[in-house]
């Protein structure tokens, strides 16, 4: 039986993180959630295999882009979550390796579909 995919969740707001984790775990994924850049670094250094990263850039400084670049360099598919108001954030997401950008507020069905197709494409 195949191991479920592990998804790294980078989310500044713990309440948002809880909602994302609950949603994805209900879909059968393993999740690893972090709320700070330091924890992000630690996860990148210590975590076992990460199949996909879901990063909400809202609430982080520009340091978030360095981490996105690192994910990209390691070949981890990256989905960025950006506030609806941040046009610049959407552009930069692609520049730092994002395979897709989801705009808040999210629709659960769209999140699940985007993750599934991204994982399928990178398998």
């Amino acid at each position: 039986m195949a191991m479920p995919a592990r998804i790294l969740l980078v989310e500044h707001n713990p309440y948002n993180l809880e909602l994302l984790s609950t949603l994805l775990e209900k879909e059968g994924y393993l999740t690893l959630g972090v709320t700070t850049l330091e924890a992000f670094d630690q996860a990148l250094a210590n975590a076992p295999i990460i199949h996909l990263a879901l990063v909400d850039i809202d609430g982080f400084d520009r340091g978030i882009w360095l981490r996105c670049e690192a994910l990209h360099a390691r070949g981890i598919p990256l989905l960025v979550i950006a506030p609806g108001t941040s046009l610049a954030g959407r552009g930069e997401s692609y520049r730092y390796g994002a395979r897709g950008v989801l705009i808040k507020p999210l629709v659960t069905r769209e999140v699940v579909t985007a993750i599934a197709s991204l994982l399928e494409g990178s398998a």
């Binding site: 989310e11 707001n13 713990p14 309440y15 948002n16 909602l19 994302l20 909400d56 809202d58 979550i81 808040k104 507020p105 999210l106 629709v107 659960t108």
Partner: peptide
Amino acid sequence: ARMQTYDIFTPAEV
């Protein structure tokens, strides 16, 4: 009393 609320999904979704 909760300090933070969610903004990632609409209330309808949650």
